[in-house]
Design a protein around this nucleic acid. Structure first.
Lengths: 180, 180
DNA sequence: ATTTTATATTCAATTTAGTGAATATTCTCA
DNA sequence: TGAGAATATTCACTAAATTGAATATAAAAT
C-alpha cells in the first residue's frame, strides 16, 4: 500500500513525469526518495495511472522539442489530504527481511570462503552507499540548523540512511573475525 | 522467492510442524528465524505444501493424545542441495523500505507533535526489541568463541539484530532534538 | 548511415505476499 | 457445562511485486 504514499510524498513540492519519478526511486540519487523506498518504472507508471483515476494526482501533458512528450504529475488537494491522513495513522516497526541473513543462518552448510566473500562484498557495497550519503550530507546539509522545514525532514531521512549503512559496517567488522 | 529458502533454513536441524514454524517466524522467539524473516501462518502452510510437492521437504504425520494431530516437516537431501545452491548465488543488498521514513520525508505537512509521538513510540519499540536480543545474547551466547559451528552462525544473525536496533536508537536520539 | 543510448510510456503474464474466514481437537478455567 | 485459549491446518480472495516485451522520439556515437 505504501507505494501509493511514497509516490504522493515524492510529488509534494516536486511535480514529475513517470520517468523522472522512476529515477528518484533509485537509492543513489541525491535528495531522493530512493533513501527509503524503491520501485520499478512499471510499478510507478501503473500506480500513477491508478492515482490519476482516483484524482489524488493530476497530470499535465508537456510538449517537448528535444525529447518525446511527457506527462507531469502533481498532487491534488484530495491527494494531499489523503496523504496527511495516512501519515497520522499508526505504523508498525518494519521487520527485518534479509536474504544474506537467511544464508548466514545456515552458513555451516557451505564453505567458509563462500560467506566470507559475500560479507566482503556487502561490506564494500555498504561502504560505497555510505560514501554517497556522506557526500550528499556535506554538499547540501552542512548547517542543519538553518535548513527550511521541508529540507530538515529530508535531512532526517538521509541521516537514517547513514545510520543504516554504518550499522551494517560495524556488524561486518564485528562478525568477520568470528568467521575466520 | 526467499520464503522458500527461509523455511528450508529454519528446518535444517529442526524439523517442525507448520504451527511451530509459524511461531519461529515471529521476531521475539529466541534462536528464531524471526530475527531476519517473518511470515504469516497462512503463507507458511502454503509454502510447506508447495515444497512437499516438489519433494524438497517430507512430512511425517504424528498422532498426539493431548493435542490435535500434526505433520512434522523435515528437509530432504534434494531440498538441502537446493538450499546450498541458493546460498551460493549472488544476492543484492536489501534496499530500505520503511513507512516511517516516507512519513518523515513529508513531515512538514503535519503537526510536529504527530511525528514526535511516532518517534517516541518507535524508539521505545526498538528499545524493547533490543532488550529481548540482549537477553538472548546473555543467556545463550556468553562465550561466542566456544560455540558450535551452527550456533556461531545463529549468533551472527542475532548480532545483526542488535546492530539494527542500536542503529535505530542512535538515529532517534540524533534526530529528535532537530524536531523540537 | 546505422547503431546505441536516453527519454518516455504501456501492456500482459506470472509470482509472491498479505488478509480474512473457516474448521477441528483438546485443555483450562470459571 | 460452557466459554475461551492453545494447538493445528486449509481455502479463497486481494494486493503487490517481478519480469518480459513492446512502442515511440530524438540525440549521440561509431
Amino acid at each position: 500500500m505504501s507505494l501509493t504514499y511514497a509516490i504522493l510524498s515524492a510529488l509534494v513540492g516536486a511535480p514529475s513525469s513517470g520517468y523522472d519519478l522512476a529515477k528518484r526511486f533509485n537509492p543513489s540519487v541525491e535528495g531522493s526518495v530512493g533513501f527509503f523506498w524503491n520501485a520499478s518504472f512499471q510499478q510507478i507508471y501503473r500506480e500513477l495511472n491508478r492515482l490519476e483515476e482516483k484524482e489524488w494526482l493530476q497530470a499535465k501533458s508537456v510538449q517537448q522539442e528535444n525529447r518525446p512528450d511527457k506527462r507531469i504529475y502533481s498532487i491534488t488537494p484530495v491527494g494531499e489530504q489523503q496523504l496527511c491522513q495516512w501519515i497520522s495513522e499508526l505504523e508498525e516497526m518494519t521487520p527485518i527481511k534479509d536474504e544474506l541473513l537467511v544464508k548466514l543462518f545456515v552458513g555451516h552448510l557451505v564453505p567458509r570462503q563462500t560467506l566470507l566473500s559475500k560479507l566482503e562484498n556487502h561490506r564494500q557495497q555498504h561502504q560505497q552507499r555510505l560514501a554517497i550519503y556522506q557526500q550528499i550530507k556535506h554538499q547540501y546539509f552542512q548547517e542543519p540548523q538553518v535548513l527550511s522545514e521541508a529540507l530538515k525532514f529530508q535531512y532526517m531521512t538521509l541521516l537514517r540512511g547513514i545510520h543504516h549503512e554504518t550499522g551494517w559496517l560495524s556488524w561486518c567488522d564485528e562478525i568477520m573475525p568470528l568467521l575466520k
